[in-house]
């Protein structure tokens, strides 16, 4: 099972790269970094990159905030990603 960095939640591996940055469209504004509670993104050479999706809640805040449509957001493969019994 996935990482236990956050209590009460389990991450099932095998999600695939369900969030991707389209480098040509990214303007390096850092808004995705600002909104992500899981710290999934970093910036290098004025472009965003996905550091890790290990603690991602699939909330899509990053996708909603990106004004350049530089984030490709899809769902993880069925049956993978985060699970919780306390939502």
């Amino acid at each position: 099972m996935g990482k236990k960095a956050i209590p009460g939640v389990e991450w099932v591996p095998g999600t695939g790269d369900f969030i991707k940055i389209v480098e040509e469209s990214c303007n390096g504004c850092g808004d995705c970094v600002k909104v992500c509670l899981a710290k999934c993104f970093g910036l290098r050479q004025e472009k965003a990159y996905v550091k890790s999706l290990d603690n991602c809640f699939e909330c899509a805040a990053c996708w909603f905030i990106c004004s350049e449509n530089a984030i490709e957001f899809s769902w993880p493969k069925g049956g993978t990603g985060f699970r919780t019994e306390f939502g």
């Binding site: 209590p7 009460g8 909330c59 805040a61 919780t84 306390f86």
Partner: peptide, 9 residues
């Protein structure tokens, strides 16, 4: 006693 932390939009 903290049991879980989670978020959504």
């Amino acid at each position: 006693k903290l049991r879980a932390k989670m978020w959504d939009t």
